[in-house]
Amino acid sequence: TTIHVGDLTLKYDNPKKAYEIAKKLAKKYNLTVTIKNGKITVT
Score class of each variant (00 low, 15 high):
residue 1 T to M: 13
residue 1 T to S: 10
residue 1 T to K: 05
residue 2 T to I: 12
residue 2 T to Y: 10
residue 2 T to W: 07
residue 2 T to Q: 07
residue 2 T to H: 07
residue 2 T to D: 05
residue 2 T to A: 07
residue 2 T to S: 08
residue 2 T to V: 11
residue 2 T to L: 10
residue 2 T to M: 09
residue 3 I to E: 02
residue 3 I to N: 02
residue 3 I to Y: 01
residue 3 I to Q: 02
residue 3 I to M: 06
residue 4 H to D: 06
residue 4 H to R: 13
residue 4 H to I: 14
residue 4 H to Q: 15
residue 5 V to H: 05
residue 5 V to G: 02
residue 5 V to F: 15
residue 5 V to C: 15
residue 5 V to Q: 02
residue 5 V to S: 04
residue 6 G to S: 04
residue 6 G to Y: 08
residue 6 G to H: 09
residue 6 G to L: 11
residue 6 G to Q: 04
residue 7 D to E: 12
residue 7 D to H: 14
residue 7 D to I: 12
residue 7 D to S: 15
residue 7 D to W: 14
residue 7 D to G: 14
residue 7 D to K: 15
residue 8 L to S: 03
residue 8 L to N: 03
residue 9 T to I: 15
residue 9 T to R: 09
residue 10 L to H: 03
residue 10 L to P: 03
residue 10 L to I: 12
residue 10 L to F: 10
residue 10 L to G: 03
residue 11 K to P: 06
residue 12 Y to D: 02
residue 12 Y to K: 01
residue 12 Y to F: 15
residue 13 D to K: 10
residue 13 D to V: 06
residue 13 D to R: 09
residue 13 D to N: 09
residue 13 D to F: 08
residue 13 D to P: 09
residue 14 N to Q: 05
residue 14 N to V: 05
residue 14 N to W: 08
residue 14 N to L: 05
residue 14 N to I: 07
residue 15 P to L: 14
residue 16 K to Q: 13
residue 17 K to A: 09
residue 17 K to G: 03
residue 17 K to R: 11
residue 17 K to I: 14
residue 17 K to T: 12
residue 18 A to H: 01
residue 18 A to L: 05
residue 18 A to C: 09
residue 18 A to G: 03
residue 18 A to I: 04
residue 18 A to S: 02
residue 19 Y to R: 06
residue 19 Y to W: 15
residue 19 Y to K: 07
residue 20 E to Y: 14
residue 20 E to D: 09
residue 20 E to G: 07
residue 20 E to S: 12
residue 20 E to V: 09
residue 20 E to A: 14
residue 21 I to M: 13
residue 21 I to F: 15
residue 21 I to Q: 06
residue 22 A to W: 09
residue 22 A to M: 07
residue 22 A to Q: 01
residue 22 A to E: 00
residue 22 A to P: 00
residue 22 A to V: 06
residue 22 A to H: 00
residue 23 K to L: 15
residue 23 K to D: 05
residue 23 K to V: 13
residue 23 K to H: 11
residue 23 K to G: 05
residue 23 K to P: 00
residue 23 K to I: 14
residue 24 K to H: 10
residue 24 K to W: 15
residue 24 K to N: 07
residue 25 L to M: 07
residue 25 L to K: 01
residue 25 L to A: 01
residue 25 L to N: 00
residue 25 L to H: 00
residue 26 A to D: 00
residue 26 A to E: 02
residue 26 A to K: 03
residue 27 K to F: 09
residue 27 K to H: 08
residue 27 K to A: 12
residue 27 K to D: 07
residue 28 K to F: 11
residue 28 K to C: 10
residue 28 K to A: 07
residue 28 K to G: 01
residue 28 K to P: 00
residue 28 K to S: 04
residue 29 Y to R: 01
residue 29 Y to S: 01
residue 29 Y to D: 00
residue 29 Y to W: 08
residue 29 Y to L: 04
residue 29 Y to H: 04
residue 30 N to P: 00
residue 30 N to T: 04
residue 30 N to S: 08
residue 30 N to Y: 06
residue 31 L to Y: 03
residue 31 L to E: 00
residue 31 L to K: 01
residue 31 L to G: 05
residue 31 L to A: 05
residue 31 L to C: 08
residue 32 T to G: 04
residue 32 T to A: 08
residue 32 T to V: 13
residue 32 T to L: 10
residue 32 T to F: 09
residue 32 T to Y: 07
residue 32 T to H: 10
residue 32 T to C: 10
residue 33 V to R: 00
residue 33 V to E: 00
residue 33 V to F: 07
residue 34 T to K: 11
residue 34 T to M: 11
residue 34 T to A: 08
residue 34 T to S: 10
residue 34 T to H: 11
residue 34 T to F: 11
residue 34 T to L: 11
residue 34 T to V: 13
residue 34 T to R: 10
residue 34 T to D: 06
residue 34 T to N: 08
residue 35 I to H: 04
residue 35 I to D: 02
residue 35 I to G: 02
residue 35 I to E: 04
residue 36 K to A: 13
residue 36 K to Q: 13
residue 37 N to Y: 10
residue 37 N to T: 07
residue 37 N to L: 10
residue 37 N to M: 09
residue 37 N to V: 08
residue 37 N to C: 09
residue 38 G to N: 11
residue 38 G to P: 01
residue 38 G to E: 04
residue 38 G to Q: 06
residue 39 K to D: 12
residue 39 K to M: 14
residue 39 K to P: 02
residue 39 K to H: 15
residue 40 I to V: 05
residue 40 I to E: 01
residue 40 I to G: 01
residue 40 I to H: 01
residue 40 I to W: 04
residue 40 I to N: 01
residue 41 T to E: 09
residue 41 T to N: 08
residue 41 T to F: 15
residue 42 V to E: 01
residue 42 V to T: 02
residue 42 V to H: 01
residue 42 V to K: 00
residue 42 V to A: 04
residue 43 T to Q: 11
residue 43 T to M: 13
residue 43 T to E: 11
residue 43 T to K: 10
residue 43 T to A: 13
residue 43 T to N: 07
